[in-house]
């Protein structure tokens, strides 16, 4: 059945955006391997509060890998060691007794730290606001089956649309580039007939804001796709470049 383990955490603590931050060590004892990584942090935090210390602030909500809220770099890898797995879905059975675990926030100029592991990803929303949509005001739509979408196109669009907007791609990219996120949204909308009218202007508007927000450029390194919990493919980046040309 379930084993228990003792771990040492090395966690980035930072009071607020203005303050200096630093790493602090914590002990996590009696951790069961059935626990999720965040449940392990919950237990550490309970302990901290009781000890009169301040708990580690981290973002999370759905805890089932779909909202994209959880965001931490675990041992140098966004969302931790397991492929296709968000931090909230990571379970302690991926670690072993005595491990030291380094936990850091997403690090990117466009994602300023707000506290400890909590960062501000508003830049993503502003990129979407710039053009990441199909203009279809409420009530103006024709019957759904008047628009035929080949199954292949629908499935491909769905693969791109699976992006949860977590920002791990930016966190992993040595250039702090948001290409994978932007490319995924462009591919989702660009592969559907409904998305054609705005297809090319959309790329221009979104890329413009992406640059303004201070994300880096892409040098086709591929770390982003490697850590993406939803397996968004780098091919979408090529597709985006082609659309921009």
């Amino acid at each position: 059945m379930s084993k228990t383990m003792n771990l040492t955490l090395l966690v980035w603590r930072q009071k607020d955006a203005k303050s200096e931050g630093g790493f602090r060590p914590y002990k996590a004892s009696g951790i069961s391997d059935d626990m999720s990584f965040l449940e392990m942090l919950d237990i550490v935090n309970e302990g901290l509060i009781k000890a009169g210390d301040e708990p580690i602030a981290f973002d999370h909500d759905c805890r089932e890998g779909i909202c994209g809220m959880c965001s931490m770099v675990i041992n140098g890898r966004p969302h931790g060691p397991k492929d296709r797995t968000t931090a909230c879905q990571l379970h302690m059975r991926s670690f072993k007794d005595g491990d030291e675990i380094v936990i850091e926030p997403w690090r990117a100029a466009a994602f300023p730290v707000q506290r400890d592991l909590v960062v501000d990803r508003g830049a993503f929303d502003r990129i979407i606001a710039a053009g990441g949509f199909i203009s279809a005001p409420t009530g103006t739509a024709p019957d759904a089956n008047l628009i035929l979408v080949p199954k292949e196109a629908a499935d491909a669009a769905m693969d791109a649309a699976a992006c949860i907007g977590c920002g791990a791609c930016v966190a992993a990219c040595p250039n702090g580039s948001a290409m994978l996120f932007v490319a995924a949204k462009l591919a989702h909308l660009g592969m559907l007939p409904q998305g054609q009218p705005e297809r090319y202007s959309r790329v221009v508007r979104m890329v413009e804001v992406m640059d303004e927000e201070g994300f880096g450029g892409c040098t086709n390194i591929g770390e982003c796709a490697a850590v993406c919990p939803k397996e968004i493919s780098m091919d979408f980046i090529a597709q985006m470049n082609r659309d921009l040309l």
């Binding site: 949509f133 199909i134 279809a136 409420t138 009530g139 103006t140 739509a141 024709p142 019957d143 759904a144 628009i147 979408v149 629908a154 499935d155 669009a157 769905m158 649309a161 989702h188 909308l189 559907l192 409904q194 998305g195």
Partner: peptide
């Protein structure tokens, strides 16, 4: 109808 027009990939 509305969702499809918005590009929801049903």
């Amino acid at each position: 109808d509305q969702a499809v027009a918005q590009g929801v990939p049903f």
